[in-house]
């Protein structure tokens, strides 16, 4: 996510909806992607993203520019997504099954590329589901957002060793899952 001009943030913090829309356009895909990867389903991700932007609009007036706006936005997003993920674990697993059924039923009308894309998405989703929400948030920030350990620590407000150990455990979990899948095949 690219840093946003300070003037734009100041305009939006004064309640300028046009300026806020520009912020939304520049950041919404990042927010939605994190929300989707952490929660695991589109309905929850949309709700999380909506809450994030409302919270940002509400609190932007109090933002003092002591830290980076993008770090602040990532923090709100990750915290909201982790909370939503913890709250709706059962509902989420039901939703995933429902979505998978739709994908199989509609598969005949899609192009090969679209099907491959959806299969990859489903694979990533099922990989992330094996992790707990904290590990999931950490690995999403690292692998999908490409953040360095220091940035992840700042967003999650944890120390560097916690970031390191969460990433290591997450990868070990994913490796053993892959081994199990291979042994079943």
């Amino acid at each position: 996510m690219q840093p946003l001009p300070k003037e734009l943030l100041i305009e939006a913090s004064g309640g300028d909806i046009g300026a806020f829309e520009k912020i939304y356009r520049a950041t919404s895909d990042y927010v939605y992607t994190i929300a989707l990867k952490v929660t695991g389903n589109r309905a929850d991700a949309e709700e999380v993203a909506q809450d994030v932007f409302l919270k940002v609009f509400r609190k932007l007036g109090k933002f003092r520019f002591e830290s980076s706006f993008t770090t602040w936005l990532y923090r709100i997003t990750v915290n909201n997504a982790i909370n939503a993920s913890r709250k709706s674990t059962r509902r989420r697993s039901g939703q995933v099954e429902f979505n998978d059924n739709i994908e199989v039923a509609d598969g005949r009308d899609r192009t090969r590329e679209a099907i491959e894309k959806e299969q990859n998405e489903a694979r990533v989703r099922s990989m992330l589901e094996t992790l707990n929400p904290d590990q999931r948030a950490c690995i999403v920030l690292r692998e999908i957002e490409g953040m360095r350990y220091e940035e992840i620590a700042e967003v999650l407000q944890v120390n560097l060793n916690t970031v390191r150990s969460r990433l290591r455990r997450a990868r070990e979990t994913l490796c053993s899952r892959a081994q199990q899948e291979r042994s079943i095949q």
């Binding site: 949309e46 993203a49 409302l54 990859n120 999908i144």
Partner: peptide, 30 residues
């Protein structure tokens, strides 16, 4: 094994696009 199972699939995952209805919902909320 770590690269294949835990790194590459995630690093190659495309960024999602926020649904168009999301801005309308945010705006209504504001």
């Amino acid at each position: 094994a770590v690269r294949r199972a835990a790194v590459d699939p995630l690093r190659n995952a495309p960024r999602e696009t926020a649904p168009p209805s999301l801005w309308l919902k945010v705006r209504l909320g504001i």
